[in-house]
Amino acid sequence: MTGRVTQRHARSIATAHPGTTQPLAAWIREAAHASDRRRADRLANLAAPLRAPGLGATLRDILDADIPGPNDEDLVEILGEIRAADAVPCLFRTAERSVRADAPAYRLRQKVVFSLGEIGTAQAHDRLRAMTAPPWPDPVRRHAAVELEVEDELGLGEDRVPGRCAALFPPRGTPDR
């Protein structure tokens, strides 16, 4: 099992192995602390469509501890997918912490922006608004503005963004978005 697990596949696994949903969060935590990236990622991708109990808290703890191993991009994406509103501060800290490691493509920060948009709470929108201002890098500022649908208002529309930035952030509604 690799990559995203569909709802159907996750349900079939849960049906074939009753009782597996409950301990998934603990197993993810255990794998992450053992630096078993592959296992942690696979379990997290199984737990997401099952909405396993404790999943959001476990992923938040792993991201906040900055544990090497699990794929932070996947964990961030899952927090958005499950709309973990209590993860908003953690997601923002993850974006702040990734300044040097994430440049120049800012893939992790893109996932944070998408996840904050998916969560959609007032707190998530406040964090996105904060990401539209300096000192955040221009590509991140633009992406946050697009998520909030205020890019033109802030002067971050595609016609005002350098070519490299525009290529990184396709307009809403394109296949990559």
Results as ranks from 00 to 15, higher is better:
residue 138 D to E: 08
residue 97 R to I: 05
residue 37 R to S: 04
residue 177 R to C: 11
residue 113 V to L: 04
residue 104 P to F: 12
residue 133 A to W: 07
residue 61 D to P: 02
residue 30 E to T: 12
residue 49 P to Q: 06
residue 13 I to D: 08
residue 158 E to Q: 03
residue 158 E to F: 04
residue 104 P to Y: 13
residue 62 I to G: 00
residue 62 I to P: 00
residue 173 G to Y: 13
residue 31 A to N: 00
residue 160 R to C: 00
residue 175 P to W: 15
residue 109 R to V: 06
residue 77 E to L: 07
residue 20 T to L: 14
residue 26 A to K: 13
residue 18 P to C: 04
residue 81 E to I: 02
residue 143 H to C: 08
residue 118 E to I: 00
residue 146 V to W: 03
residue 99 V to N: 11
residue 129 R to K: 01
residue 145 A to T: 10
residue 135 P to G: 03
residue 103 A to P: 01
residue 6 T to H: 02
residue 109 R to T: 09
residue 112 V to E: 08
residue 11 R to Q: 15
residue 111 K to A: 15
residue 174 T to C: 03
residue 55 L to F: 11
residue 34 A to I: 05
residue 18 P to R: 02
residue 115 S to T: 09
residue 89 P to L: 01
residue 155 G to A: 05
residue 112 V to Q: 11
residue 149 E to Y: 04
residue 154 L to Q: 08
residue 52 A to N: 05
residue 174 T to M: 00
residue 153 E to P: 07
residue 112 V to M: 14
residue 66 D to Y: 10
residue 131 M to N: 04
residue 118 E to G: 04
residue 55 L to I: 15
residue 50 L to M: 07
residue 16 A to P: 07
residue 55 L to A: 12
residue 93 R to V: 13
residue 140 V to P: 07
residue 54 G to V: 03
residue 133 A to E: 13
residue 131 M to L: 09
residue 132 T to W: 12
residue 95 A to L: 12
residue 35 S to N: 14
residue 106 Y to H: 15
residue 26 A to Y: 09
residue 137 P to S: 08
residue 88 V to C: 15
residue 162 P to S: 09
residue 139 P to L: 10
residue 6 T to E: 03
residue 18 P to E: 00
residue 163 G to M: 02
residue 85 A to R: 08
residue 102 D to M: 04
residue 156 L to P: 06
residue 131 M to Y: 06
residue 63 L to K: 06
residue 34 A to R: 08
residue 96 E to V: 12
residue 6 T to P: 01
residue 130 A to C: 14
residue 47 A to H: 07
residue 44 A to S: 15
residue 6 T to Q: 03
residue 15 T to I: 03
residue 64 D to F: 05
residue 61 D to C: 04
residue 24 L to E: 00
residue 154 L to G: 03
residue 58 T to G: 01
residue 72 D to V: 05
residue 171 P to D: 01
residue 59 L to S: 03
residue 25 A to C: 06
residue 97 R to T: 01
residue 154 L to T: 09
residue 137 P to E: 06
residue 121 T to L: 02
residue 63 L to D: 10
residue 84 A to M: 09
residue 53 P to I: 10
residue 83 R to I: 02
residue 136 W to R: 13
residue 37 R to H: 08
residue 101 A to S: 06
residue 28 I to A: 05
residue 140 V to S: 10
residue 123 Q to P: 10
residue 107 R to V: 14
residue 38 R to M: 11
residue 79 L to I: 05
residue 7 Q to K: 12
residue 49 P to Y: 12
residue 96 E to G: 09
residue 44 A to W: 01
residue 146 V to K: 07
residue 132 T to A: 15
